[in-house]
C-alpha cells in the first residue's frame, strides 16, 4: 500500500498543495490505483524483454524545415497571467 509520506512527496514534486483531507483521499485513491497495477507483478517476467513502446513502430521522423509558429497572442491566450511578450509566473527564486 501507498503511505501518506509517499503521496506528500509526490505532491511536492508536482508542486501540488494538498489539504489534510485531500491527502487522505489521495492516499486512498492512489493506493488503489497502484495496487491494481501491482497485480501485474504476479506475472513471471524473468525471461521477457522490457518493452520500450506499446506500438510496434520505429524510426518515425520529420524533415528539418522550419514552419511558421503560433502568433504570440494565440500562444499566450490561455495563460492566467501574462504581459505583452511573456508568460508571468510567481517569482522563480534566485539560485
Amino acid at each position: 500500500m501507498l503511505d501518506r509520506e509517499t503521496v506528500e512527496k509526490v505532491a511536492l514534486l508536482a508542486r501540488l498543495k494538498l489539504s489534510d483531507e485531500e491527502l487522505a483521499t489521495m492516499t486512498d485513491q492512489l493506493g488503489k490505483i497502484v495496487g491494481y497495477i501491482d497485480q501485474l507483478s504476479e506475472l513471471d517476467t524473468d525471461n521477457v524483454e522490457p518493452m520500450a513502446h506499446a506500438v510496434e513502430l520505429s524510426n518515425v521522423f520529420k524533415s528539418d524545415e522550419a514552419r511558421p509558429s503560433l502568433d504570440r497572442e494565440a500562444a499566450l491566450s490561455n495563460a492566467p497571467k501574462k504581459d505583452d511578450e511573456c508568460y508571468r509566473v510567481p517569482a522563480v527564486l534566485g539560485e
Partner: peptide, 27 residues
C-alpha cells in the same frame, strides 16, 4: 545546428522576440 526544433517545426533561430517561436508541442 538544425533549422527546426527537435520534435516540432518551430524555428530554432536565436534572438527572436519572446514567445514567437512556439506551437502546441512547445507549450
Amino acid at each position: 545546428a538544425t533549422e527546426s526544433k527537435l520534435f516540432c517545426r518551430c524555428s530554432t533561430k536565436f534572438g527572436s522576440p519572446p514567445n514567437t517561436q512556439t506551437c502546441p508541442v512547445c507549450t
